[in-house]
Design a binder for these strands. Structure first.
Lengths: 247, 247
DNA sequence: TGTATCTATTTGTATAGACAAAAGCGGGGA
DNA sequence: TCCCCGCTTTTGTCTATACAAATAGATACA
C-alpha cells in the first residue's frame, strides 16, 4: 500500500520526465490536485514540496508551480575510496606506502591549498594495486593540526583514505578531474609508458573552512574511468542501516 | 524570520556536519524535539523528513533516527553543455560541423549502445573552440526514431548538445569520464600533440529505456578539467525562475 | 499617464488530533 | 528452551483548520 503523497509525487514526476509536461508548464494548483486525489491540501503540499526540494518544479506564491528546466549538467558521480570501490566490484585490493614524511607547508603548496605557510603536514605517497596490477598512485597531504592522530598512525592495515573518512568529520569537499600525461616516475610505478594518458582525481576536504586533507589520485587511463548515472527521481539517496547503536 | 522547521533542520544539520553527532548517533526522538522547540510534532517531522530525504539521517519506526554514514563518494559534478559553460565563464564560444551523415547502426555500435542493429541514426562530428582555441571534439549519434526533427536540422545556429536539450525530453543519463591519448586525427583538430592526454566525457541519454543520443566529447587535457563541490546541505538544488517570467 | 492601494489567489507554515505500521521486548504456554 | 502473542515505543500518514506572506491584477486617484 503506497501513501497518497507518494502516489501524487510519482504521478507528477512521470508526467515531467516523460516530457508530457515540458519545462515552464504550469502544473495544477494545490486545490485542483486536492479535488483530483480527494485528499487534504497538506498531503498535496507534501508531494509538491518534495518535487520542489528535488528541483523538479519551482513554486511561487500567487503565481503557481512550474516545471523546472532540465538539469542534465548536475550529475551524481560515484567517487569512492579506492579500496571500497575494489571491494564492491569483487576485486582484490592491496596498497603499499611509498613515502611518509612530516613537513612544514612551503609557500607554493600553501597557496595552492589556501592554508597558511609553515603549518605542519603529513605527506604520504601510496601505490594501490587491484588484482595485483598497479591501479593508482596516491599523493596525499594531511593537515596535522586538524588530524593530530595521523602523526602516530602508520597506515599499515587501513589505507589513508578510508582511515581519514572514518576518523575525521568534514563539511565540504571539492573534486577536480584531469587528464595528464605520465612522467617517468609515474610511468615506472604504474607500469605504463611515459606519456601515457592518466586520469587524475584531486580531492580537497574541509572542516568548517579549514583544510583537512588534499589528495591526488593518479590512475592509468587504460585501466580506469569514472561513471555516473542520473535519474531525475533518484538524487543520491541510498538506504543505509544505523551503525552499531547509540553512543 | 526563519521558519521553525527550517531552524530545526539547520540546527541538526550543523550538529551532524560538525561531527558533534557522529555517524550512527541516535538523535533525539520527535517528542523530545517537540519539547525542546515548543512546536507541534508535524513541524519536527517535517525537519526530520527533510534530513532523511537528503540522506543525512536514517529513520526506522520504533527504533529511532540515526546519523547516516558519510557519503563523500556521492559528488555533484557540473557537467554542462560546452557552449553554456563557456558563456557562464564569460568566454567566447564557436563551433564548426565537421561531418553530418545519416547512417544505419552497424552491429558493433548497436551493441555498444544497447539498441537494435539497423536503426537509423544521424552521425555528427563537431569541433568546438573557446576564445578561438580548439577546446573539444564532439562525436555524436542521434537516434532518428526518437528525434525525427534532427533529420532536417543543420545545426548552423544552435550547437547539437543545446538543441537536443531543448528539443527532447529525457529520463535517464549516464556519464563516463576517461583519459585517452590523442590519435593523429584528434591531435590535428585539437591543435595538440599526438599522444597528448585528453579528457573524454561520454554521455548516453535515454527516454523511457530507449537511447536518444550518445556523445563523446574529447577535450585536450591541458585546457580542460571537471570540478565539483559538495556541501552536505546543498544537494543540487538551484533557484530557477519559471520560463517566460522576468525577474 | 502614471502611481498608490486594495483585493484575490496561491503557496508557506503551523497546530492538534487521530490512527496505522514497524519492530523491539517481555510474558505465557507448550 | 522456544515460539507466539500482545504491549509499547517510535515513526509514517492524513485531516481540517487557521493564519501569514508574496504578488499579480484591478481599481482608485493624482
Amino acid at each position: 500500500m503506497i501513501s497518497i503523497h507518494r502516489r501524487i509525487f510519482e504521478d507528477l514526476e512521470a508526467l515531467i520526465v516523460s516530457g508530457a509536461w515540458p519545462p515552464g508548464y504550469r502544473i495544477p494548483i494545490e486545490h485542483e490536485l486536492v479535488q483530483q486525489y480527494q485528499c487534504s491540501r497538506m498531503t498535496v503540499n507534501k508531494a509538491l514540496s518534495a518535487l520542489a526540494g528535488r528541483g523538479m518544479i519551482i513554486r511561487r506564491r500567487k503565481v503557481g508551480s512550474f516545471v523546472a528546466s532540465r538539469q542534465i549538467e548536475r550529475t551524481v558521480m560515484d567517487i569512492q575510496d579506492i579500496s571500497t570501490e575494489a571491494e564492491l566490484a569483487g576485486h582484490d585490493h592491496s596498497y603499499r606506502i611509498l613515502m611518509r614524511k612530516i613537513e612544514t607547508l612551503d609557500s607554493a603548496t600553501a597557496a595552492q591549498l589556501g592554508e597558511p605557510m609553515g603549518a605542519q603536514i603529513l605527506r604520504l605517497h601510496c601505490l594501490h594495486a587491484v588484482d595485483g596490477k598497479p591501479n593508482a598512485l596516491e599523493r596525499r597531504i594531511i593537515m596535522l593540526a586538524m588530524v593530530p592522530s595521523a602523526r602516530t598512525e602508520n597506515f599499515a592495515s587501513v589505507p589513508p583514505g578510508k582511515w581519514l573518512l572514518d576518523m575525521v568529520p568534514w563539511s565540504k569537499a571539492r573534486h577536480v578531474i584531469r587528464a595528464v600525461s605520465a612522467d617517468a616516475a609515474m610511468a615506472r610505478l604504474l607500469e605504463t609508458e611515459r606519456g601515457a594518458a592518466c586520469l587524475t582525481l584531486i580531492r580537497q576536504t574541509w572542516q568548517s573552512s579549514r583544510t583537512v586533507t588534499y589528495v591526488e589520485i593518479i590512475h592509468p587511463g587504460d585501466r580506469f574511468q569514472f561513471a555516473g548515472d542520473f535519474h531525475p527521481s533518484e538524487r543520491g539517496v541510498m538506504d543505509q542501516l544505523p551503525r552499531g547503536s547509540a553512543s
